[in-house]
Amino acid sequence: MASLDEIKKVIVDFATNTKKSKFYFKDMEKAVQKVIPDAKSREIKKAATALINEGTLVYFSTGSSTMYGLKGRGISLETEETGKAD
């Protein structure tokens, strides 16, 4: 079984290299399971939560659905739309 750190590493690789800067949990899950086929979705969620708490990943919510993204990567709607980052 893969350790939390291994899963985290795969997630970061995926988040860094995927074409989309924001992605659904499902996309991240598939990417992890490609490398670590026996990784369970609950473990992947744990790893993603750890990355969120470390500040590596961020959530992006449309209000109705939620995506993940690498912090600082891609267009930040907030900065672009308002001209002020808080």
């Binding site: 074409k19 989309k20 800067s21 672009e80």
Partner: peptide
């Protein structure tokens, strides 16, 4: 293209 990510918009 400057303010939106096209793959996300498509999706």
């Amino acid at each position: 293209a400057k303010i939106c990510e096209i793959p996300l918009v498509v999706a």
